[in-house]
């Protein structure tokens, strides 16, 4: 159990009377790639946002790298963490969004080096060097001076990945990273994610790309109506699903 990166125990989340997550438990080992699939509105994105405490949870516990997210437990009592402590926890968790959310007033390189300089306190020259290396890693070494609006969707998403990697995270969360892209641009982004997985990054990916899940994932989880319906090896879940809900979902998307 030494290398447990994510340990989610019975996570529950509701907006008012609307129960979105109904007791989700799963674990991710260090270096593992987990793909979460499921119909829209199933709670898979919400679960991802709970992992880095962008959303607070109503029940259960989330441990990332052995740290309880968002709270401090003293005996049986939970204390809310201070905002700066939560910010600290988030530094080791990178996140990539469906709509990129690049900072439009900064160039690609500035997007990548903003947090390393301003949050991690890295020397600007050093950050710039690392930033250019990261841009090269996602195939955009010549786009550093471009503003997001001057880049294609696929390029923007790759800058966003480089930006998240710049904080040297231990875990990367991907929230439908290719859903807002034109079909011909999806491949470039998936390639970057594949090489990241190959390099040993721990990743949790909410996706509709079944091909990616089959090829890269160590484990696939199917979520519907806020509960895990089925989980296992990609072959097992995607090619030989046991549950009727999984079968009918896969019939629709494959």
């Amino acid at each position: 159990m030494a290398n447990l990166m994510v340990d989610a125990r019975n996570v529950r989340k509701s907006y008012g009377s609307n129960q979105v997550l109904n007791g989700i438990s799963l674990t991710v080992q260090q270096g593992e790639v987990l793909c979460i699939i499921g119909p829209s509105g199933s709670g898979k994105s919400t679960f991802l946002r709970c992992l880095n405490h962008l959303e607070s949870i109503n029940g259960g516990r989330i441990y990332v790298n052995d740290e309880l997210m968002g709270y401090r437990q003293v005996g049986n009592v939970l204390h809310e963490l201070k905002p700066q402590d939560i910010a600290k926890q988030r530094q080791s968790i990178g996140m990539v969004f469906q709509r990129f959310n690049l900072f439009p007033h900064m160039t690609a390189l500035q997007n990548v080096i903003e947090a390393p300089i301003g949050v991690a306190g890295i020397d600007p020259e050093e950050a710039k060097k690392q930033g250019l290396e990261l841009l090269a890693q996602v195939g955009l070494q010549d786009k550093g001076d471009h503003y997001p609006a001057q880049l294609s969707g696929g390029q923007q998403q790759r800058v966003a990945i480089a930006r998240a990697l710049a904080m040297k995270p231990k875990l990367m969360l991907f929230d439908e990273p290719t859903s807002a892209l034109d079909p011909e641009l999806v491949g470039d982004v998936l390639d970057v994610m594949k090489s990241l997985a190959k390099a040993g990054m721990t990743m949790i990916v909410v996706t509709h790309e079944m091909g990616f899940a089959r090829e890269v994932a160590d484990k696939v989880v199917f979520i519907d109506k806020g509960v895990i319906v089925e989980q296992g090896k990609p072959k097992q879940v995607l090619d030989n699903p046991q549950e009727t809900r999984t079968k009918s979902f896969l019939n629709k998307v494959l």
């Binding site: 880095n52 962008l54 996140m95 959310n101 690049l102 900072f103 947090a115 904080m167």
Partner: peptide, 12 residues
């Protein structure tokens, strides 16, 4: 989304 991206990078 800008604030969420900033938060996810650990910005105060």
């Amino acid at each position: 989304g800008q604030v969420e991206a900033a938060k996810s990078l650990g910005m105060s």
